[in-house]
Design a binder for these strands. Structure first.
Length: 869
RNA sequence: GUGGAGGUAGCAAAGCCUGGUCAAAUGCGCAGGACUUAAGAUCCUGUCGGUUAGUCCGUUCGCAGGUUCAAAUCCUGUCCUCCACACCA
């Protein structure tokens, strides 16, 4: 039994000592292979982590061996709430907690044998890193891309902080899953909406991204073309703007609806008998936080506010409502409601007895409002729409919006769902936002020279409010403009700010003159292969794209997109749940590595399923990988033998296939191919040294320690990890030869058997007697198969329409096993002579009595028709 | 509701794009055998049904149709599962 633990340690030490994986800019094709950096948690690594890292590492190793200059770095997304919460809970400092967690993860990562260039380690909570966060923030501010605004924002009561829209999932906090409420606060925003169009447009250029992620981003940005229509109030000149994508239904508007918390609402009802009720409704819906942004099972509720507006097209007075189904932050915060042709409006109208006016009817029948059970939302023909009657609604969308624009009642516009990125967080463990508040000058950005604004360590964690408020020295600041007293901003940055550019920092991690060395960045960037979970589809991935575009416009970068190829790895679950401490279903790295060795764990996790799909852990399967690893070791015991072309053919075939599979990240298939090869080698006879040498190289991405050990045992110098990936030569691949090997045994058994029976010298004779067409076909097929093994080619050469069905059935079989092609084929038409001749000849040759039977079985070529008596 | 992915042998998982060498890789599980006093480990063989010495035949790739000489693979319909987004006007 091999001592895996010892071998692993040995090679990990050697790699570290010789710094094999350290890279510099060189005159070689670069390859930037990157995994999304982890959040340092203290709970240790489990099989899910091991799998993720193994995927990235395999690919890095593969690319490195293929001659690329591979940048494969690791770092830690070290700021963030969990560290702070853990600090409160365990009475440690977040800094201490984080440092401990990082060193724990690093140890584990090193145990996996990951080929990172550790000299490029990045830690976002270090002042050398977050200094540049602050610097970027100032640049954003200078360029009008960061601003402060009071707005109703998402508030997580448990995390005690605000959240960006992207961080609210189904109305719940992305991190702690608490229900998110709404608060009115003044906050810092980044103007990601300025890039909405480009972020959307250039999704098309991301060819190496999964469709699903691209789609999620598209939906998130949510561009829709429509028309802004102004509805004049009946009793004043105020115009209510509404956005619609269905201007064709304008004639059917029977009411308008405001989002309840819209500031205009209170203005409108001021000093009317509705004021009190409206205020109550708003309180109920908004302030008591019953208003969550999810549609799930929510009853539509609203009320009339006593005002009317005029439909610009018809001049009709339409009542104005407020209702909980209208979103404040999409469009204008008010909608025109067309109950006949919008399901939500329909439900609301039915509930509150508002008239329903049909303006589009199906092509082939009439539509009556009273009989409708649902809104009619399909395409149709306009009715009750004045001069637009009879027009199909698709045309009407164009025509009516043009008409509205011409009349000055509105204009054609584009709307986005994407909101500006809210980056303030009312928490301690993050990058301080570099501004101060001066009584005289207001908001004043800190001077660049003062950076970094250090995050003070001396703060109190009470679990309530922002700990930064407890450090007086931090709060006190001087105004950069007037020199007067000022108060420092205590909000810190969303950690997604940190992760929006870390991949740039890896290119020059120690650079001090700026966030990154432009020259080095232009050598390494963009990232060639990015690997990470799909949960970041609209979070990190969108923010990082946004940053890249901003930095490009600030002339700091010269490319448009940070990640060329994106790969989403699947998760490892156990009993259907993601592995996590809280489920208590963690299978730890330590446990498995101890039992089987880390190479086994890597091989198992990579072979069990496509890296992109989820895998539900079972303790049983890993035994198979363990056996596989052991089998490879035992190959070393028996390497000598005669030259064997078949082994050579098989080897070249395997190299070809493994290379292709790894290239396209089908790591499971690559390993399976290697398993087959190892099984084969363990049984094959002949010289195997060359094969095993190449096997070691091909194993390196998956089981690197084992690969190095074998490589060394075979007497090779240097590391397998940096040796050249094996090349195959097509002309050495010989399927026929390989197949023939399988037949040798069968055939020799046959002959032996025959000889035993008849006691004659070996001479294999198979006869086939056929009809005319079969005879012709067989002759042709025999020729064709000798030149190609491609079914289609053979088919083309021998096709005979009349007997196509039979031929199509026979060909694949003939190709599979061409030794079954009879060596004597007799044409039935010349039956008599040949039979007689053949019989005589064979009798003479074998000295036996035997009979030639006609082939009357359906199977062709069927059983040899040589019968011995 | 909208969008996406998928349903393959006891289980997991390839194959589907580019139809034929597919009763369908590989691993687990299971069965038999070798080794062993025995168990475990290891190795070998088998693992849809029937049949042979090699083999061949029949029935299979969610279900129902279609295209084709030929369908797990292409097309249509249908059922089911999973995931993402979700009152975006």
């Amino acid at each position: 039994m091999v001592n895996f633990r010892e071998i692993e340690k040995k090679w990990q030490r050697k790699w570290e000592e010789s710094k094999v994986f350290k890279v510099d800019e060189e005159n070689k094709t670069k390859f930037y292979n990157l995994e999304m950096f982890p959040y340092p948690s203290s709970s240790g690594l489990h099989m899910g982590h091991v799998r993720n890292y193994a995927i990235g590492d395999s690919y890095a190793r593969f690319k490195r061996m293929n001659g690329f200059n591979v940048l494969y770095p690791m770092g830690y997304d070290a700021f963030g709430l969990p560290a702070e919460n853990a600090a409160i809970k365990n009475k440690t400092h977040p800094k201490e907690y984080t440092e401990k967690a990082i060193s724990g993860i690093m140890d584990h990562q090193k145990e996996i044998g990951l080929s990172y260039d550790w000299s490029r380690l990045v830690n976002t909570s270090s002042k050398e890193y977050y200094k540049w966060n602050q610097w970027f923030f100032l640049k954003f501010l200078e360029n009008g891309l960061a601003y402060r605004k009071k707005a109703p924002i998402n508030w997580c009561p448990k995390c005690q902080t605000v959240l960006a829209n992207e961080q609210v999932i189904n109305g719940k906090c992305w991190r702690c899953e608490s229900k998110v409420g709404i608060k009115d606060l003044e906050q810092w925003f980044l103007k990601i909406t300025k890039y909405a169009d480009e972020l959307l447009e250039s999704i098309e250029t991301l060819e190496g991204w999964p469709e699903r992620i691209k789609l999620m981003q598209k939906n998130w940005i949510g561009k829709s073309l429509g028309t802004l229509v102004n509805f004049k109030m009946m009793d004043s000149d105020y115009e209510i703007p509404v956005f619609t994508t269905r201007p064709d239904t304008l004639h059917g508007v029977t009411f308008l609806v405001y989002a309840p918390e819209h500031t205009k609402v209170m203005e409108l009802v001021k000093n009317t008998k509705y004021e009190k009720d409206v205020q109550e409704f708003i309180n109920k819906v908004v302030l008591e936080e019953k208003f969550t942004r999810t549609a799930e099972g929510k009853e539509k509720e609203g009320m009339f506010i006593g005002k009317y507006a005029l439909n610009p097209l018809t001049g009709d007075a339409v009542p104005i409502y407020i209702a909980n189904f209208v979103l404040l932050d999409y469009g204008t915060g008010a909608i025109m409601a067309v109950p006949a042709h919008d399901q939500r409006d329909f439900e609301f109208a039915r509930k509150y007895d508002i008239p329903i006016k049909v303006v589009i009817k199906p092509k082939d029948k009439e539509l009556k409002a009273e009989e409708m059970k649902n809104a009619f939302v399909e395409e149709g023909i306009l009715v009750n729409s004045g001069k637009f009657d009879g027009m199909d609604n698709k045309t009407a969308i164009q025509e009516i919006s043009k008409f509205v624009e011409k009349k000055g009642w509105g204009k054609i516009t584009t709307q986005y769902k994407l909101r500006d990125w809210l980056i303030s967080r009312q928490r301690y463990w993050g990058t301080p936002i570099p501004v101060v508040y001066c009584d005289k000058c207001g908001v004043v950005p800190v001077d660049e020279k003062e950076l970094p604004i250090l995050l003070p360590e001396d703060v109190k964690f009470t679990g309530e409010g922002n700990p930064l408020l407890s450090n007086e020295g931090f709060l006190k600041a001087k105004c950069g403009k007037c020199g007067g007293k000022a108060r420092r901003e205590t909000d810190t940055m969303d950690t997604f700010f940190d992760s929006s550019w870390y991949f740039l920092r890896y290119c020059s991690p120690d650079y001090e003159k700026g966030p990154f060395d432009r020259e080095k960045v232009s050598y390494w960037m963009p990232v060639d292969q990015y690997i990470g979970g799909a949960e970041h589809a609209v979070l990190h991935l969108l923010y990082a794209r946004f940053f890249t575009k901003v930095l490009r416009d600030l002339k700091m970068l010269d490319f448009d997109e940070p990640f060329i190829n994106l790969f989403n790895q699947g998760t490892v679950t156990k009993e259907g749940n993601k592995m996590s401490k809280s489920y208590g279903n963690v299978v730890s790295q330590d446990e498995i590595a101890e039992k089987y060795g880390i190479d086994t764990a890597r091989v198992f996790l990579l072979s069990i399923a496509n890296p992109g799909s989820d895998y539900d852990w079972s303790d049983e399967g890993i035994e198979g990988s363990f056996r596989f690893i052991n089998k490879i070791y035992s190959l070393l015991d028996n390497l000598d033998g005669e030259e064997n072309k078949i082994i050579d053919s098989r080897l070249n075939r395997v190299i070809k296939s493994v290379t292709e599979h790894v290239e396209s990240l089908e790591l499971n298939l690559a390993i399976i191919e290697l398993m087959g090869f190892v099984n084969y080698l363990s049984k094959a006879e002949g010289a195997k040294k060359e094969a095993v040498k190449n096997l070691a190289l091909m194993l390196n991405p998956f089981a690197p320690h084992l690969a190095e050990e074998i490589w060394e045992k075979l007497g090779n110098k240097g590391f397998a990890s940096v040796a050249d990936w094996p090349k195959y030569s097509s002309n050495k691949i010989n399927y026929e030869l390989e197949y023939s090997e399988n037949l040798i045994e069968i055939a020799s058994n046959d002959i032996k058997r025959l000889l035993k029976l008849v006691k004659i010298e070996p001479k294999k004779v198979t006869l086939f007697v056929a009809e005319k067409w079969k005879y012709d076909f067989m002759k042709k097929a025999k020729d064709a198969i000798s030149t190609t093994r491609d079914v289609k080619d053979v088919m083309r050469k021998v096709m005979d329409k009349e007997h196509a069905a039979e031929i199509s059935k026979i060909i694949p079989k003939l190709i599979k096993d061409n030794s079954k092609i009879p060596n004597v084929i007799l044409d039935q038409d010349r039956e008599y002579d040949i039979f007689v001749n053949a019989k005589n000849q064979l009798q003479k040759e074998f000295g036996l009595n035997f009979e030639i039977k006609k082939d009357d079985s359906k199977a062709f070529p069927g059983k040899p028709t040589l019968l011995i008596e």
